[in-house]
Simulated scan of single mutants.
Amino acid sequence: MIIVLKPKVSKHEIQDLVEKVESYGLTAHVSQGTETTIIGMIGDVTKVDPKQLEVSPVVDHVMRVSEPYKLANRAFHPEDSIIDVAGVKVGGDHLALIAGPCSVESKEQVIMIAKAAKAAGANMLRGGAFKPRTSPYAFQGMGTAGLDILIAAKEETGLPIVSELMSAEYIEEFNEKVDLVQIGARNMQNFDLLKEVGKRCTKPILLKRGLSATYEEWIMSAEYIMASGNPNVILCERG
């Protein structure tokens, strides 16, 4: 359920409505655009009477949201999301081009590719330091050493780093070294990982769609991250 406010509502009036929403035992999510302010109500709204909210002179109308996802719903924030990745804007009219090797294999390889990618117009560098493989015998990535190579490439080119996180045990290291944390297609529905990323990741998240996931399942995975505390999620379609 969302409360759509009338134009030119004061911060004090918004806070009064937030407190009223919280008095129902719900969480209030405020989204302020250039023209419209919306308060989303998250939780069990079955006992909320919309008419009790619509009597407020600052409320335009109250709407029920039928989709299971709330924070990732356009109704909760109708304006385009603009995610800042180390100074590079993603969303709206900003075109982000991310390029780089599937896996980090050597410093020379990554720096060469990073320079070529930047020259071609890329504004972020992607490289896999930790790699999920179908075969247990295939190259699994260089791990921490691979992240350090990506940092060296960033120092050479200035390109922000994108790399895939496969386990919650590396979240603190990714917070320190990576600018955009990728959750790969195989982990799109690793809900324990998604919740930990939402709670502990301080960087934006690039969430790839699972191998056979529906759009709703994909968005619900984004909802896991956002509901756990990280609102900066970028959806990435898998090729």
Rank of each mutant, 00 (worst) to 15 (best):
D44W: 02
F76W: 14
F174N: 01
Y24D: 04
L180V: 12
V90Y: 11
A86Y: 15
I171S: 02
L53I: 13
F174D: 03
Q189G: 03
L235W: 09
I3T: 09
A222Y: 01
V45S: 13
K47P: 01
A129Y: 01
K199E: 12
S103I: 01
S31K: 11
K115G: 11
V21K: 08
A72N: 08
V162S: 15
K154G: 06
S66E: 14
I82D: 09
E176V: 07
D44S: 05
G87Q: 14
H77N: 13
V4R: 14
I171Q: 04
F191I: 12
S31L: 06
L125R: 09
K203I: 10
I39C: 14
N187V: 00
H29E: 15
V65E: 00
G141C: 10
K154Y: 01
V9G: 09
G210Y: 05
I83P: 07
L71G: 01
A75P: 00
P204R: 05
F191N: 12
T34M: 11
L5Y: 15
A129N: 05
E19C: 10
Q52W: 02
E164P: 06
P160R: 03
E237Q: 14
A72C: 15
A153I: 06
R64P: 00
G33L: 13
E67I: 00
M142D: 00
A227K: 15
D44T: 00
G25V: 12
D44P: 04
G92P: 08
G100A: 11
T46C: 03
F139S: 07
V85K: 09
A120L: 12
F191V: 15
A153V: 06
P231D: 12
S163Y: 03
K6T: 11
L180E: 09
E196H: 06
P231M: 10
K115S: 13
V110E: 08
E169A: 05
Q189Y: 03
F130R: 04
R209Q: 11
V62T: 12
N123W: 07
E67K: 14
M112V: 12
K8Y: 15
M188D: 02
V88C: 04
I2A: 05
L165R: 01
K20N: 04
Y24W: 07
G33W: 11
M142T: 02
M188Y: 07
G184R: 01
V21C: 08
F139A: 08
V197H: 01
L207T: 02
D49Q: 12
L71Q: 09
V90G: 07
R238E: 06
V9P: 02
D44I: 03
L147R: 06
G239M: 00
V9Y: 10
V9I: 11
V197K: 04
L5R: 10
A114R: 09
L165A: 00
